[in-house]
Amino acid sequence: MITQVPNPILEVHDLTVSYDQQPVLWNVDLSLPAGQLIGILGPNGAGKSTLIKSIMGLIPPTSGYIKIFNKALQEVRTRISYVPQRESVDWNFPASVLDVVVMGTYGKLGLFRRPGKKEVQIAQEALEQVGMTAFVTRQISELSGGQQQRVFIARALAQQADLYLMDEPFAGVDMATETAIFQLLQDMARTGKTVLVVHHDIHSAMNFFEWVIMLNLHLVASGPKDQVMTEELLRKTYGGKLNLLTQVTDLIRKQDFNPLKS
């Protein structure tokens, strides 16, 4: 059940990705409409983060390509905003909440230019949107998990992009915060932004996403929520390991070279 759209904001064409020659995503081929809140669902190790990271160009594809706004990534980087997983950084780093959110403006600033008043203004507005104004000068190690997550989302907002890619932004976030952030993301989608979220909770996915991508090493489904959130597709996504595919993966890993590399 894969729905392709005309004039997609993001096109993933036959993408295969490997880590150390072990394929973690097989031939993902999908296109996404603009202005929607889109969820990426799948079990642990299904390749959800890998998909986001390849879109951001952080992992080189083994084969296939990605087009964003019908262009190559390098041409449109400043229009894309990225929220990495919270655990990917050391929160003991000596920085305030504002310092981290201002990093969101670095992309448009470019190399060597120092952030000024305008950038601080943008960062403060972003913090207001996620309800963290009271924590502007707080040291980041003193924040709770949910607050750290909101700081990361604020940093993404400060990037002032059109496409937002978020890797597990709700990990370690309480229910009230999750709902508040989801509402913020819905508002963003309503103003024409496209928001792509890696998510693990099927229940809240039902409530908030308009479009859903289901992954389990390969693309199970991509389409409007009502059409893809079916029992059969969910079982296909979460129903155990794909035994044969896992065996092939192991076989490839044991080769002396990567046969999938084009």
């Binding site: 951001m56 160009g57 952080l58 390098q74 980087r77 400043t78 894309i80 990225y82 990495p84 990917s88 990093m103 670095y106 992309g107 190399l111 940093r155 990037q159």
Partner: peptide, 8 residues
């Protein structure tokens, strides 16, 4: 990782 993502 974020630095790479914003093209630095």
């Amino acid at each position: 990782g974020f630095g790479k993502a914003i093209g630095f």
